[in-house]
């Protein structure tokens, strides 16, 4: 069931759009903001709030790579794997992260702290390699700094 705050936020979005469906992505974002990921049940809830079918909502949800349809850790690490970061050696960062966290791409740490995902260009190519954890951008990364960065997240 959607929480009152989720419903309030989605209802607010509904007032901004000419047709209910148009609020679909906003609704998915709102739910993910609250729950970190979007479950089947949430898909159904959103669908009924927006007069859409669950299939239609999921069709949209599964298209976008930043809507998570499976549970993720408390913090999501998005490591840029695009061209400038490639040239500047993101694979070293990747290896180091995997070593520190004992997980591969798409996995979460056992303690549910982190999920590691590769991500397309973060738009900070002049400071490659780069990654984002939640809303924080880290640039000009060095392998040595990673441990300290990860420590900031509980």
């Amino acid at each position: 069931m959607l929480s009152d705050t989720e419903i309030a936020q989605i209802t607010h979005e509904l007032q901004q759009v000419p047709v209910k469906k148009a609020a679909c992505i906003e609704a998915l974002k709102i739910v993910q903001q609250e729950r970190r990921w979007v479950s089947d049940e949430s898909i159904e809830d959103i669908a009924s709030l927006l007069d859409m079918s669950t299939a239609e909502v999921d069709s949209v949800a599964t298209f976008y790579n930043l809507i998570f349809r499976r549970p993720v850790g408390r913090h999501v690490i998005l490591l840029c794997d695009s061209i400038s970061c490639y040239v500047m050696g993101y694979t070293k960062i990747q290896n180091k992260l995997m070593e520190l966290l004992h997980i591969k791409y798409g996995q979460s740490t056992d303690d549910g702290r982190f999920t590691l995902l590769p991500n397309a260009c973060l738009g900070t190519c002049d400071h490659a390699p780069a990654l984002m954890i939640d809303n924080d951008l880290y640039r000009d990364l060095k392998e040595e700094e990673l441990e300290k960065i990860l420590k900031k997240y509980e």
Binding site: L28, V60, F63, Y64, L66, I67
Partner: peptide, 22 residues
């Protein structure tokens, strides 16, 4: 947005703004 390079293509962008697949 919620990801996807396609959203930059102007007509896909419009679909996305309409809450659809880009």
């Amino acid at each position: 947005g919620v990801g996807r390079y396609m959203c930059g293509e102007e007509t896909a962008l419009l679909n996305s703004l309409e809450g659809k697949r880009a």
